[in-house]
Design a protein around this nucleic acid. Structure first.
Lengths: 204, 204, 204, 204
DNA sequence: TATGAATGAGCGTTCATTCAT
DNA sequence: TATGAATGAACGCTCATTCAT
């Protein structure tokens, strides 16, 4: 791997472990085994380096989401596969998900930073979810009284909220439970939320 | 208000607006109209000042939660009132909620910081929620096939995840929707998640 | 002397010896025997420190010019005293004149720096000179066919040009001569330039 | 034009616009459209590049001075042509004069820099002026009570001082005047300074 | 209690220069 | 000749914290 990639990879790791502010050029350079100055040479600024990291993480995530959608039979399973894909990524260290949680793109790290590059990628993710919901409404696998944009907002906040809780809150410390049955439970709440109302038994 | 309180209030505001790292003694002192040195004099360190802020916010939140529980008729409405209480606090600027979101107590702001004070308060919040769930199971307002600790984890991540989304993601920027009907929708997903399965109409 | 003054004095010396770019916080701090950070604490930025230095030098110069004008009998001797005053200051190390020459206020040291404070002081100097010229035209000691602003420009460029040459060009290195009779020669060129044309002997 | 010349030309432009310190390899390379490393490859060091620039400017100036002397009828007009030549060059952007003013060869740009190459060229200029003055004394066009080296010093400081004022001081900002009649006025002060004393009209 | 001068380590970044290709 | 990655010291400046008053 060349130094430019090595910097990106090391930065991703440290942003995830230490957060934006405590990840310094010096630490990245030491960990990557290169000179301080090379970071600015390749990435210009810390803020830009950070954005490249985020974009890479999100782009990888989109790739995986697309794959997962390929195997979905209807709208509801598309939404659930989409969500599972995010949940799964969150527990794979190499996905960089921790970086996303510790340094949310919606928390400008530097005042007046231009987030537009990242937001463009996020918009793709949102659009995909809305498409899945519309598909589900059409094919009857999702109840038809929902407003897709509103429901997409609920789904994303639930899914990302749960990854945040699982990764950042230490198990047991508060009497909570983020063990292996936690993410299935998240899938369960989403299912209950989306599936069409159960038909009362109809009398003949 | 005395200087000590003024510092706490100003710090809370700035932590919420700027995050932990970009909130400095100097800015706090300027905004509060007092001398730099007075902050360390009263609070010792930035980390400790931050924790006092968080504790105050959480303590206030607990007070409001307790009030809301007073009016709940059963376990389910206790859980929902509890949740609404958090959602409502999130949109009251004076609640300091933004500070909670920008500087999560679960993100150590300084490496090796001792969070135990804050965690103790958080534990109280969790315990209260678990009590509400148990009450609901007992009185039949919540389905009885749940594990309270697991479900509490889901509820907290959903509720806090949604406040995070509403406050940090700018409306419309991604095609999402965090307007007035967003929080009611969160209450709706929780309700669907907790309520007992609808009995199929039974013929006599 | 307190540290704030000591910084100003040391900075003045180093700007004069090394120029703007090579005068660093570190060097100033070492020479003044204080900590690096104290410079920014008292002066905010290097550019501002520099401007305070220039303003102090120019303010002192104005004081001396005013004193010298007190003893002038007519407009011409006012102009000459004014000029001598500048020439004299240039060879007094404590005047800070070298700083003025090495780091001319008309050479922005930092791109986009705001020079307005310095320019205001310079304007006072110019206005005083123009007043002297007008006085000389009125009292007949200076020829009356001149345009004061234009002539003031010539006088300043001649006087400051000569101090620049004397202080920055090493004696003898180019075959030039900046010894003790150099400044009197500058006074001489000014006198020839300003004095009224000699009347041809008039026949009765 | 080959890259080596292109570097020299670009460097000259940037030294004039930005001064020595703010002109960097990177900026030169960008403006010239070549790689960073090529500058050091061709010129070794920034200081040496700078000196090559200065020498080129001064060499061109000498050429023009020589041409102007060709048309002078006597010593005085030689001196005046010489001076006009410098004044004229100062307002021709391609002459690189701004570089001379912003980065005077008599201001060592780097501490301990060896200026001897530049000084050798400057010495030629000085020698030429002294020769003109001696010619004028001989042919009676210049008063004979002067010391050539001293007077040359006065002329150079007046001429270069005026170019400095015209190019660096923004018109009107101080109430001064550097418009089209400024340089003629400089020629006028030199003329008054050098011409033989007017003979009182002698009667029969 | 309150001030603000003082510290000095550390920050992101720049830069002239070197060097493998 | 030409590239641009790589170096590492140095820069201006920030900051939490200390301390004399």
């Amino acid at each position: 791997m060349d130094n430019k990639s090595r910097i990106l990879k090391t930065a991703e790791k440290l942003f995830g472990e230490l957060g934006y502010a405590e990840t310094t050029y010096k630490r990245i350079a030491q960990e990557a085994g290169i000179a301080d100055g090379l970071i600015a040479h390749h990435y210009g600024s810390k803020e830009n380096l950070f954005q490249q990291v985020e974009i890479r993480i999100l782009t990888d995530l989109i790739k995986k989401i697309d794959e997962s959608l390929y195997y979905a039979s209807d709208g509801l399973s598309s939404v659930l596969n989409f969500s599972k894909c995010i949940l799964k990524a969150s527990i794979m260290p190499e996905s960089g998900f921790l970086t996303l949680l510790r340094c949310s793109p919606f928390l400008a790290n530097t005042i007046d930073a231009d987030n537009s590059g990242i937001l463009a990628v996020c918009t793709q993710v949102v659009d995909k979810m809305i498409a899945c919901l519309n598909q589900g409404i059409d094919d009857g696998s999702i109840r038809d009284d929902i407003e897709p944009r509103l429901v997409a907002s609920v789904i994303f906040s639930t899914v990302f909220g749960s990854t945040r809780a699982k990764l950042l809150v230490q198990e047991n410390i508060l009497g909570l439970k983020f063990s292996d049955d936690y993410y299935p439970e998240i899938v369960s709440i989403l299912t209950k939320y989306l599936e069409p109302a159960q038909q009362p038994a109809v009398e003949d």
